[in-house]
Design a protein around this nucleic acid. Structure first.
Lengths: 191, 191, 191, 191
DNA sequence: TATGAATGAGACTTCATTCAT
DNA sequence: CATGAATGAAGTCTCATTCAT
């Protein structure tokens, strides 16, 4: 009771993301979630139509949170390098604050149980970054190669780094992360 | 009988890897595999003790194949840049020849149903590349940062690129891939 | 709801013992039990970990009930003949009250799926009777032959008689049963 | 090869009876039998239509063997006591020569997979002994009680004794067995 | 004749979902 | 609202039986 009484709905989401991140959607049972959330199994169905609904709600909420983080104080008028810094830092900050969210998003973003809405949201997230890359290419700050490919390089690198932070393989604090940001930038910067 | 007489065991493995890559281990049922392999469900159990055994055999076979590809004509005495080229090209070549294998490996390498043997094989694969990075750092060809982190950057980038090739988002042929190799190298090269 | 609200657990046990007694453990399927108990197949697994657990619980419950019957009003200080009467009557009474229990116990007491606990319970039951025989031998009331063999004679005879009562071959009411008790006693009495 | 090369059919029967006696019909798989008999699983189906056929053939062969043993040198004109001796000895001898047969017969004689023919054969075996008891009752050598009940006492006792011999609990050699025969006789003799 | 790989029906068991309390 | 007992469809796995060799 120290922490107030968050709504059951939130308890369920909080329990589910940990399990989905660790065991995957199909490896996680509804009773597992209920136990972890300390609610009855039936209660989950008061808040979510079914398991697929739950995972989609979770996916969208987390992606929206990441998106929000990204848009917060976005340096629209800054150089692409500075925008890149903001993006990297936003994702990093997001992953630090919500240990399982980024891994959950990445490991579920291609699953067939995602609704069109979920997929579109993910696409729009990628698209947002793509635009930055495209502008960077136009401005000569970023190497001119197929945009999607560059996104892949950077997205893949960042997500992998943060997975390793989550796993404890590497440390997620500033000095190293700043250097890794530089690495990622070096991968796509012009020249 | 027109085409050949591949063993049923291979039919099963071939069918399973596609399904595991597309739907994940837990999202794939044994009857699905049997149907795709055009064998009876019971036949699968002649060749594999259980589903977990099947996924582990597959994981190890594919990882060994990747490893072989990597070791084939490995330029031990070349510069780290040339070794990096060989590694990138090997993985690329492997992914081109076996569409689902790399994605299967990457999406299952942290699952709890992998046996110790499977995990150790994966670790030894990562370790092999780590050593290259380490030597590169000693020789001043690669930036000096925590080795694991650099591996993460490069591994994440490569795998993500090849996932996108598999998905058809980007084209896996030479000119682009050579450039992407350069991008990855730029991420970790000294200076 | 007219009749009472026995617990599902008891419904399952009641259905299972009939089937196990009639068809044996391996000849009885879980769906058979579920149908007979008028519950869903899954319900059985709320109360019992697996089929083996169910048969062991049943074995121990019935054996404990028989043991209780045996110990109830046990004439510790009476003659061995009187103790024998009590034993015979207890088993008879038990078999009359629970048609399938004795046959179930006898036909499953050597099966490999019984846990050590189940086997020990059965052994302790036999041991209890053995002690009576031993004392009878010491007191000169019972013939001096290997105790186990005498137990076999009497146990085999009683169980077979009660199987035949169950099958309807013979009638389980007093006059005949009293005579059969005398027969069994005659088999082992001294002189 | 020391022992000649018995027919495969016999190998199968020999392997099957051991397994049926130890694990029951339903607890024994056809591959188990094939392995124990050192034949291919398919071979079993050359000699027996199906598993049920096998168990019925076995049941009838063993019962016929027991019957033969019983009829061999049967002392038709002797006293009932002497006939009883012959019966007891025959069964004992049969059980000694074929370790698993009696237990197999007893533990399968009420199963639902027995054909009518098998059941009738068993009934005729019991009937044969019943007639002896009946004559004994008429002659005043055996107590006058429902014949079936007396059969039950004696049959139950004998079978249980021989099960215990098979299990090694008691020793099946002469001095003890003669005494146990006397016990069984005492159970049913007149006065 | 003998084999054992192959099959698929059916066994045991799990789990998403419902519903009486 | 919340629960968790109950359900049965569906999953994993076994095994009696067939059939190409």
């Amino acid at each position: 009771m120290t922490d107030a009484k968050k709504s059951k709905r939130q308890d369920i989401l909080d329990a589910a993301i940990v399990l989905f991140a660790e065991r995957g959607y199909n490896g996680t049972t509804v009773p597992m979630i209920a136990d972890a959330a300390k609610v009855g199994a039936g209660t989950i169905y008061r808040y979510f139509d079914h398991k697929e609904n739950l995972v989609n709600v979770l996916f969208q909420e987390k992606l929206n949170a990441l998106f929000e983080q990204l848009l917060k104080d976005y340096p629209t008028d800054a150089s692409i390098r500075e925008q890149f810094h903001h993006i990297f830092e936003s994702i990093h900050h997001f992953a630090m604050g919500d240990t399982h969210a980024l891994h959950f998003i990445d490991s579920h973003c291609n699953e067939m149980f995602l609704t069109e809405e979920s997929q579109e949201l993910f696409d729009s997230f990628i698209e947002y970054i793509s635009n930055v890359v495209r502008v960077g290419q136009e401005r000569g700050e970023i190497i001119v190669l197929q945009t999607e490919a560059l996104i892949g390089v950077v997205y893949g690198a960042i997500v992998q780094i943060l997975k390793m932070v989550r796993a404890g393989t590497i440390d997620g604090s500033s000095p190293l992360m700043d250097n890794l940001e530089e690495c990622c930038w070096n991968a796509i910067k012009a020249n």
